[in-house]
Computed example of a mutant assay.
Amino acid sequence: MIFGYARVSTNAQDLATQIGQLEAAGCERILHDKLSGLNTDRPQLRKLLAAVSHGDTVIIPATDRLSRDTADLLTIARDLRAAGIGLRSLAEPILDTTNELADVVLAVLGLAAKLEHKRLRERTTAGRAKAKADGVRFGPKPKLTPHQQREAVRRRDIDGESPASIGRSFNVSRQTIARLKLGGSSI
C-alpha cells in the first residue's frame, strides 16, 4: 500500500496542495498533521507509522514536512527501512529508500544529522559564552539575597554565632551558611 503524509505548522495553513501532490503520486491513504515540525509528537504521524507494514511505501511532499530535524528524519527513515517500508520524497528525489541507493541515502542523512548535531553544539557553546560575558549567571538562584549573605557572614564571623543558628533564622541549612565567603557568595 502507498501511504502519504502531509503536515502544515498551523491551523491557518492549507493542506490542499500537499494532499493534491500525494494523490497525484498514487497515495491510497493520506494522513496529515497541523503541528510544528519541531514537535516530535505528531499524532497522525504516529498513526501512520503504526499502520504501515512490510512492503508499503510512505510518500512525503518534502523532507521538512516529515521532520525539520535531520536526526529525527534519519531515525524515521531507518525505522521504516528496518521494517521493510520504503520512504520517498516528492521534492527531493534523492530521498528514496525504495531503490538500490537506499544505503547511500541513509548514509548521507546520517552524515547530515551528525553535522547538524555538531553545529548545534557549537551554537550552544557560543551562546553560553556570550551569555556569561554579558553577566548571565548559570545555575540555581541563590538562596539568600546579597544583603542576607552579608548579614549571615557578619553574624558568623564577627558575632561568632553558629552556622546552624543563622541557618534557622534564614530558613536555610547550616552548610549554606558555612559555605558563605567574606565579601562574596559561594552559593
Rank of each mutant, 00 (worst) to 15 (best):
L90R: 07
K47Y: 03
E100A: 15
S173E: 08
R137N: 06
Q175F: 11
K114E: 13
P140V: 08
V58Y: 00
P146D: 12
L90T: 08
A178M: 07
L31I: 02
A133Q: 13
P43E: 07
S186H: 11
A83C: 05
R156L: 15
Q175T: 15
A102S: 11
R150W: 02
R168A: 15
A12R: 13
L182V: 14
D134E: 15
S67L: 04
H147F: 03
I166Q: 00
H147T: 11
A91L: 04
R121A: 11
L180W: 06
A50C: 05
V172D: 03
E161M: 13
L80Q: 06
G184F: 08
P140Y: 10
I30L: 00
L101I: 02
V108D: 00
G110V: 08
Q44A: 12
R81Q: 12
I158H: 10
R156P: 01
S9Y: 09
Q13M: 10
P43S: 05
T40H: 13
K47Q: 15
R137S: 06
K181A: 14
G160C: 09
Y5W: 02
S165T: 15
D41N: 14
D69R: 09
S173P: 04
K132N: 07
T63W: 08
T176W: 00
R119T: 08
G20Q: 09
R156S: 01
A129L: 06
P140D: 07
T40V: 13
S165M: 12
L106P: 00
N171R: 14
L49D: 04
E100C: 09
L111A: 10
R78V: 14
A112F: 13
S165W: 10
K114C: 02
Q21M: 15
V153E: 12
L106M: 02
V104E: 13
T70C: 05
H32P: 02
G160E: 09
S185H: 05
G160K: 07
H54C: 11
T98F: 11
L73D: 01
D41Q: 14
N11L: 14
L35F: 15
V172Y: 03
R156G: 04
L74Q: 07
V105G: 03
P163L: 14
G20T: 09
L48T: 08
D33V: 00
L31M: 14
I59M: 09
S162D: 07
A25Q: 05
Q175M: 12
A51Y: 01
L106N: 01
L120E: 08
G135N: 03
I60Y: 05
Q175D: 12
E116A: 15
A107K: 08
A83H: 09
A131H: 01
L182G: 00
V52Y: 06
L120H: 08
Q148W: 00
L101V: 03
T145A: 04
S162V: 04
D64Y: 01
A51E: 09
Y5C: 01
G55I: 09
A6T: 04
G135L: 03
D56A: 11
Q21W: 12
A113Q: 01
H54W: 01
S53F: 04
K34A: 05
L48M: 07
T40L: 14
G183L: 00
E151T: 13
K141A: 11
T17Q: 12
I59V: 15
R137A: 13
A62N: 02
T97D: 10
R42I: 12
A131P: 00
